[in-house]
């Protein structure tokens, strides 16, 4: 069957589309369906009642607050630290290269092994600091790799031109590097949010319980506990809400980037 060339090209997306559909879209639709039911074994539609229940639940609100706090504090820190480390490592020659190689190390260590070490270091600390530290420590490598690659691919001529105009290193980086690498920086920020959600694994291992201290009680704890109580409806409703929130967040970022351009 002779297909037109561009049709063949269009068909190339098929495997990816099939996979995304099967394992991301369809499941999300299913979750949406489950979120408007009364129960897994009581298939009546109660529409938005589950959402109301979840939103008015004080522990969901606590979990939301904690998660937002985590994102609001950790992601900028993550970004800042990543920028600092990558930028400075480019100046530090051999040591810089060493630090870059080192930074990726924590990402590849299985959480189980490391949580024990962190438990030792943060034994008496009664705040969310240990979890923030674990997050930063483990995932900074990814940010560093992406940003180093981005920074090192800026054409050196631009810097030459700027230096001839008399710009110092600080101004150069603030006005050239950062704007030029806006896209990778935005991507790193999004990655930061993704990893924020992944810290549930480490947090769970760290506290070893389904009900951690109040300051560490994030959305996934809420969702996991609902799951264990067989209350899938609350879990589905909160999942849908998170996804919509994230969609808004991404839209905001892309919008701002488009505006800046």
């Amino acid at each position: 069957m002779k297909l037109k060339f561009f049709t063949k090209l269009k068909l190339c997306i098929l495997p990816a589309a099939a996979g995304l559909l099967l394992f991301y879209f369809l499941p999300f639709l299913k979750v949406l369906y489950y979120s408007v039911l009364k129960g897994q074994y009581q298939k009546e539609f109660v529409w938005l009642r589950n959402y109301k229940n979840v939103l008015t639940n004080q522990y969901f609100q606590l979990a939301c607050f904690n998660t937002l706090k985590l994102i609001a504090i950790c992601v900028p820190l993550f970004l800042l630290l990543a920028i600092l480390i990558s930028l400075l490592s480019l100046y530090a020659g051999r040591m810089g290269r060493f630090v870059r190689k080192l930074s990726i190390l924590p990402l590849f260590l299985p959480s189980v092994s490391v949580v024990a070490a962190f438990l030792l270091v943060f034994e008496k600390v009664e705040s969310e600091l240990p979890i923030y530290s674990i997050f930063l420590w483990k995932y900074i490598g990814m940010g560093v790799v992406i940003l180093v690659a981005a920074f090192s691919s800026v054409e050196p001529e631009i810097y030459e031109a700027a230096r001839m105009d008399g710009a110092g290193p600080l101004t150069m980086h603030a006005y050239i590097t950062l704007p030029v690498c806006a896209k990778p920086i935005q991507f790193t920020m999004i990655l930061g949010v993704v990893y924020c959600f992944r810290t549930f694994r480490e947090s769970y291992l760290y506290y070893g319980a389904n009900y951690p201290p109040d300051y560490s009680y994030t959305l996934q704890y809420y969702m996991n506990n609902q799951f264990l109580k067989l209350n899938y409806q609350s879990m589905a409703a909160s999942s849908v809400m998170i996804t919509l929130l994230l969609a808004g967040f991404v839209a905001l970022c892309s919008g701002r980037k488009n505006g800046a351009e």
Binding site: P27, F28, V31, I190, V194, F197, F227, V250
Partner: peptide, 18 residues
Amino acid sequence: LLLMMMPLQTTLLPNYIG
């Protein structure tokens, strides 16, 4: 981008069923 950010727990049960 949005799909990248969806936490795993969201799709766990439907993926299991699938």
